[in-house]
């Protein structure tokens, strides 16, 4: 019976072979389809996707462009022209003026004072808050103790409470310990209000590390700080970078705490910028204002463009779980 079938199929096979040969011949001639399926370079779908993204990108970039071109124009040119037009005559004078001469109320020594204040606020605040929060995260993830999760839950809910609710108690608290109005007081405020998000970041990271590593270190006789500094810290550089990015941009951009918890001589750059631009006295110098605005935005922008994917990872890690 097996043989019978073979015979029956013989003509079919012959047919198939002819087709194959034909196809081969065609290919050799170059008439038949060869290679990968052809793709239209500019399909309607692609035009729509890239077109939309292009238009949206232009919209998003426009304010940056306006800031840059305005800050490089002289006032006469601004009065005459179009705010989107590139400068006819490039001048850096607004930048110089914004940095060292612009006035806020009493003194006229420009934004430089605010810049250095912001540096003096941001560096210790970021370092201190990250240290505290990373230790918290490590204690929560590895040294689970009774009540730890409860405190952590309160902390996370606290992140959603509007700052306005806790503002005045915090003022009283700082006044009681004698830190109200001082740099140290503001550092403390940033540490306290930055704690939920950064602690969450570190707790999730340390939880994701294999627990056996922690156990092995305990068998090896390392204590709380020994494991933190010698085992955990060297493994956590990426997450420390992410925390740095979150905290430095967040603290640099802060306005509310800067106004509430410091005295005018310690005002951070954002507060000073607002005072310069929105001061009612004198003629408005839009070019100087834009130069000052751009100067204030430069630090977080530099961090953003330098850190790239880590910035995204930072906000996603904080936001999705938060």
């Amino acid at each position: 019976m097996g043989k019978c079938r073979d015979i029956e199929h013989a003509p079919l096979r012959a047919q198939a072979e002819t087709v194959l040969t034909d196809y081969a011949a065609q290919s050799r001639d170059g008439t038949g389809p060869r290679g990968r399926k052809p793709k239209k370079r500019l399909s309607g779908r692609n035009i729509m996707i890239y077109g939309t993204l292009f238009v949206v990108s232009v919209y998003y970039l426009l304010p940056l462009w306006v800031m840059v071109v305005t800050s490089l124009k002289g006032m006469p040119e601004i009065r005459l022209g179009n705010i989107f037009a590139p400068p006819v005559e490039i001048t850096f004078e607004p930048w110089v003026k914004a940095w060292s001469e612009a006035c806020t109320g009493l003194n006229c020594d420009g934004l430089s004072r605010g810049f250095w204040n912001s540096v003096r606020i941001t560096v210790p605040s970021a370092l201190f808050s990250i240290f505290i929060a990373s230790v918290n995260g490590y204690a929560l993830a590895n040294w689970r103790f009774k009540g730890g999760e409860a405190f952590f839950t309160i902390l996370i809910f606290g992140a959603f409470v509007p700052y306005q609710v806790m503002l005045y108690p915090m003022v009283i608290l700082l006044r009681e310990i004698g830190l109200y109005g001082s740099l140290a007081g503001l550092v403390l405020v940033h540490t306290v209000f930055g704690m939920p998000i950064v602690t969450l970041l570190f707790r999730n990271y340390f939880t994701s590390l294999p627990e056996e590593l922690f156990k092995a270190a305990r068998v090896d006789g390392a204590g709380f700080w020994g494991i933190y500094f010698r085992v955990m810290l060297p493994m956590s550089l990426p997450i420390f970078t992410v925390a740095m990015i979150i905290q430095i941009t967040g603290i640099w951009n802060d306005f509310l705490f800067g106004t509430v918890f410091t005295r005018p001589n310690l005002y951070p750059m954002t507060v000073q910028l607002n005072n310069i631009v929105n001061s009612v006295q004198g003629v408005k110098e839009y070019n100087v204002n834009m130069a000052a605005t751009l100067l204030t935005g430069l630090v977080p922008l530099a961090i953003y463009f330098a850190s790239g994917k880590l910035f995204v990872r930072g906000i996603a890690a904080g936001a999705v779980k938060g």
């Binding site: 941009t249 954002t270 204030t296 935005g297 922008l301 961090i303």
Partner: peptide, 8 residues
Amino acid sequence: PFALSFIV
């Protein structure tokens, strides 16, 4: 823009 301060 998310990296910028609300003031800016």
